[in-house]
Computed example of a mutant assay.
Amino acid sequence: MQSGLLYTQYTLVQQSRQVVFQFLKENLMDDLAKPLPIFLDKTISYMYVHIANTYIAWAGNFAMNGASTYYDQDQPLNITQIEKLFAQVDEIMAGFIAHFSAAPMQDVKGLNGRKNTLKLMPTAYSLMSLPTSFTIKARS
């Protein structure tokens, strides 16, 4: 059961994301680059690039000791570009899930590039919820 926990959780995240992307396509295509007061005058595009960068930072660069570069949050993207960005996030997450799926409650250790010191996240499972919480905060 535990070996499929991360996969199941991330599959639910992907499915939810697809619902949101479909909504954006159908209702808000022209508003992706429009500053919104509820987002501190940031755009919907900005928020999704920020979320993608969060996955890259925590799962890719921290937990998996990667060296992926971050995307410019201030450069507006259209929905097709956002979907391509999240296809890359899905690849990072596939590696993360493959690495941690056997023991999702294990400690995650990684290198903090800014201070070059070892930091510790509580568990792989808890790390999976970080970008999701950003998504929820951005929509509430």
Rank of each mutant, 00 (worst) to 15 (best):
1 M>S: 10
2 Q>T: 11
2 Q>C: 10
4 G>Y: 06
7 Y>T: 06
9 Q>N: 12
10 Y>Q: 05
10 Y>G: 02
10 Y>F: 13
12 L>P: 00
14 Q>A: 09
14 Q>T: 10
18 Q>M: 12
24 L>D: 00
26 E>M: 08
26 E>P: 02
27 N>D: 09
27 N>M: 06
28 L>I: 03
29 M>V: 14
29 M>N: 14
30 D>A: 14
32 L>M: 12
33 A>S: 14
33 A>K: 12
34 K>H: 13
35 P>G: 11
36 L>W: 06
37 P>C: 12
39 F>E: 00
41 D>I: 01
42 K>R: 15
46 Y>E: 01
46 Y>C: 02
48 Y>V: 01
49 V>S: 04
55 Y>L: 02
55 Y>N: 05
57 A>L: 11
60 G>S: 12
60 G>A: 13
61 N>L: 09
61 N>G: 07
63 A>D: 02
64 M>E: 08
65 N>F: 08
70 Y>K: 11
72 D>C: 10
73 Q>D: 11
73 Q>C: 14
73 Q>M: 15
74 D>C: 06
77 L>F: 14
78 N>T: 06
79 I>D: 03
83 E>R: 08
87 A>G: 08
87 A>H: 13
88 Q>N: 13
91 E>F: 08
91 E>R: 08
92 I>H: 03
92 I>D: 01
94 A>H: 13
97 I>P: 01
98 A>M: 09
101 S>D: 07
107 D>P: 03
110 G>S: 08
113 G>L: 12
115 K>C: 03
118 L>W: 03
119 K>M: 10
120 L>G: 00
125 Y>S: 05
135 T>V: 15
136 I>K: 13
139 R>L: 15
139 R>G: 05
140 S>A: 07
